[in-house]
Design a protein around this nucleic acid. Structure first.
Lengths: 343, 343
DNA sequence: CTGAAAGCGCTAACAG
DNA sequence: CTGTTAGCGCTTTCAG
């Protein structure tokens, strides 16, 4: 691919002594519709190819009010869960001839709103949003006709936007049940970001599992809630271990939180599962190779990402009728060896 | 942030009975230079704010030939190493008011070339490229004046482009030396993608360390070379174990390769470090918590990403003189417990 | 079968 | 202190 210095329609038209219009028509596949002579058509497409012509997307976007680009807003691209989703969005978009503009919101609603405003001003044709999940006012606009959007991972009960997520409630219930059935009675939740839908659903799953088994709900075992990050898992575990010597099991609400918990447990010289059991939400490859291969609630993030692009493009370029709604995928409970049988 | 339906300069100008030019001047901070009356200025900026006006980047880009956007090309965003770099690039770009267009090249030179052509056609102001590293012909254009670019992780000896990477040779040498000093004589390299600069430098480091200790170089211990992926680490380890029962240590040329090796070793019921030792290039948080906390060569990927954006914007918006060149950051050898002392 | 003209929204040169 | 004009590159009437 030699470096051709980006030609324009006009230049091609001039060289061939035809009008820009004609060139435009040919190059956008409208030759037949306008019954352009084979001769002109051939000459034009040949020259275009020779010059490696690509229509200027800025000019095109300005005129068409379509940019062939979509936005992708992610709370933290370095979290492998989101990176996995991002990958699928990137591939799916390219497959359809779209570019993706990436925004990292750093789990900050302000930055998220700013990102969306930016994407809107850039005239993207749609947005895949993994929202921070704490506020949704800035998303109101999307409910109406407006800009196509798909929410991933976190959603809002009062906002009927297409959404792709997993069945967090069942996932957490499976995990908690497993712990209870193995004899655990003092199970602590290492929460993610309090107020976000996955966190609340997981919490509900946990609570329901306890209720099912007629176990008391001890609020002081529900800790954390500031973030899904590694630091949060670490700190909360440290405090928890100090305050509650009776805890026998942890349920981490995210892979980074589990990692933080691991670090804290190592510092305290606690062995898994002999001294304490742990289950993590969101499987990652390495979890199978830990000192104690970790039992986890697997989230199918590749499918989540793929489904998200599909739903988005169903709105962007409706094939027939756009299927709104979205989907709640099942989680997959993977039992490894991080839980000790107590009874 | 209420949904204002995206105004234009013209509309503001009409409402205030002034020219578009005046509005443009005021809104681009040139009021003083053109000595625009406080009254007009105030009225305009007020109305603009009320309408939440943002200049249309497409129109702006078309006119100015600047888009306030940069491209980011990554071989695999789901590899935590690259995700870490991507994060810093995204943050650094936003900080400077730039958007980033993300392309995943899937470790395919063809897709990489395509991505670059796309970015060029989209008139990005610069590119951060983590090249596949096998071919560089499509990068020739960047050597001249052209589009600002920074290479990250992999580079080309015959292409003098600004580059940010680590000292792979020393890193691999440290690791190999460590193995040798612990009595290992049959050390296998699980290569990454053969022909890419990090792979070749690491290989050289390995070879030099052997030479230093007057150990013979056994080519059949150098396996893999198809990819930096998990699958490659798995397959190659499987084959290796079959062919060479005398191997006592592995040097994995990437975090995903190490993960694959781990999977293979687990299947073969080999314990680390009792049965086999392993060191991985590219530290990741979880490596500290494996059954055998893994000794690794740490790459400062956050700094790499930050440095890359810095170098890029030094070219995009030169502060004084753009410092070309780039940087080779040192690696950090972290000794954990995946290597057994044999002597 | 082809083209001229207008306009998407913005800015810069040239004029006052 | 302000405005007119032209044009970035493209598509789309409207008019042959």
């Amino acid at each position: 691919m030699p470096t051709t210095p980006l030609t324009t329609l006009k230049r091609i038209a001039e060289q061939l002594h035809v009008s820009e219009t004609t060139v435009s028509r040919i190059l956008s596949g409208q030759a037949a519709r306008y019954r352009i002579s084979k001769k002109t058509e051939h000459a034009v497409s040949q020259l275009a190819r020779a010059h490696n012509f690509v229509p200027n997307p800025l000019a095109r976007g300005l005129r068409l009010k379509k940019t062939l680009s979509v936005g992708l807003v992610i709370p933290d691209i370095s979290n492998p869960f989101f990176a996995g989703i991002a990958r699928e969005v990137a591939l799916g978009a390219r497959k359809r001839g779209y570019s993706v503009i990436l925004c990292d919101s750093q789990d900050d609603t302000g930055l998220e709103a700013q990102s969306i405003a930016l994407l809107r001003s850039r005239r993207v044709d749609g947005i895949v949003l993994c929202p921070v999940g704490l506020a949704s006012d800035h998303l109101r606009e999307f409910t109406e006709n407006g800009l196509p959007i798909v929410l991933v991972d976190r959603c809002f009960s009062d906002l009927p936007l297409p959404y792709v997520g997993v069945d967090n409630l069942t996932g957490a219930k499976d995990a908690t049940r497993h712990l209870i059935e193995n004899g655990h009675r003092h199970i602590s939740c290492l929460q993610g970001l309090r107020g976000t839908s996955p966190n609340e659903s997981r919490l509900r799953g946990y609570i329901e599992a306890l209720a099912e088994h007629h176990l008391p709900l001890d609020r002081s075992l529900i800790v954390g809630g500031d973030s899904y990050g590694e630091a949060s898992g670490y700190i909360e575990t440290k405090f928890l271990l100090q305050a509650r010597k009776d805890v026998t099991a942890l349920l981490a609400f995210g892979n980074l939180i589990a990692l933080g918990a691991l670090r804290a447990l190592a510092e305290e010289k606690l062995r898994i599962p002999e001294d304490i059991s742990i289950i993590s939400f969101d499987n990652q490859p390495y979890l199978a190779h830990l000192a104690a291969p970790m039992t986890t609630v697997d989230q199918p993030y590749a499918e989540m990402g793929q489904l998200a692009v599909t739903l988005l493009f169903d709105q962007v370029q409706p094939p027939g009728r756009a299927l709104k709604g979205g989907a709640l995928l099942p989680t997959n409970f993977i039992i490894r060896r991080s839980v000790r049988k107590l009874c």
